[in-house]
Design a protein around this nucleic acid. Structure first.
Lengths: 151, 151
DNA sequence: TTGCTCCTCACGTCACGTGAGGTGGC
DNA sequence: TTGCTCCTCACGTCACGTGAGGTGGC
């Protein structure tokens, strides 16, 4: 097992050491192992988790409290899949399972809608900036023509 | 001139009254007129400004200090365009003007790059969620098949 | 007058930033 | 030993939220 110290995790995640400890305190990042000297020892999995957390925060604009929800929802899905494998095909369990899957499906749809809205807004800002840019570039080439006229 | 009170501005912008006053305090929103009773009186232009500010903040992830920069940069562009109209075509002025336009062009390109990166990240999260969704839906239809098997 | 929104402090909160002061491994 | 990173408080800051307490127009 390859252990990573917090400095390395900070570099590879782009977060500060303080932020990484803070996420642990809030329960967003699972507590890592500790060495004899009480130094935090992380694994590659911690890095993966952090990257997903960062994306969810930046992309979806989640607060840290919402992130906790989001993570427990992802965990719920993983647990469902684990359970599925060892579950006897009892129809009562199946009905319960279906209910939970439908909930997960609902949550996922909501998130995808949210992302759609985000994408639309971003494209609006993008168009506006592109218009601005082409106007600026027109103005620049006008000046160039005046300084060194064509013909 | 149609005057809007802060409640109306809050509703139409989606911000809280406190936030609107705070943006004024920081210089992000121009101070509105005041009635005799010292009540803030806004115009449609204030609404437009706020909407752009919100987009820039959400989409580009700007801090309020960065927003101040962004706004002064937009203003700089507007001033350039005003000046252009009444400017005699003195080549010294033109050189200066070109320099400023090139700066604006640079800033705009940087912003567009930033937006590109944002879009990429969002699409990654979107794909992941879509994969998750289709797996969940497969699981649901499997259950349906087991409860009411085909044939 | 009553009820509503408006105002200005001003303290609270969230998500960290930034030292202070001390310990541990090459 | 020196220099480095690590640790835990703990106060500071940014972007507001949330009353407190008072004023103004239908």
């Amino acid at each position: 097992m390859v252990w990573l110290k917090i400095e390395e995790v900070a570099k590879r995640s782009g977060l500060t050491k303080r932020t990484i400890r803070y996420y642990e305190e809030l329960g967003i990042l699972p507590p890592p192992e500790r060495s004899e000297g009480k130094i935090r020892l992380y694994t590659e999995e911690h890095i993966e988790t952090l990257k997903k957390v960062i994306d969810a925060k930046e992309v979806l604009g989640f607060s840290l409290q919402e992130l906790l929800q989001y993570i427990s929802f992802q965990d719920a899905l993983a647990i469902q899949r684990q359970e599925y494998k060892r579950q006897y095909k009892d129809s009562t369990d199946q009905a319960e399972r279906k209910k939970r899957l439908l909930e997960i499906d609902k949550n996922t749809s909501d998130l995808l809608d949210l992302i759609q809205q985000k994408l639309q807004k971003i494209h609006e800002v993008q168009s506006e900036l592109e218009n601005m840019q082409s106007r600026v570039r027109d103005a620049i080439s006008n000046i160039n023509d005046e300084i060194t006229p064509k013909e």
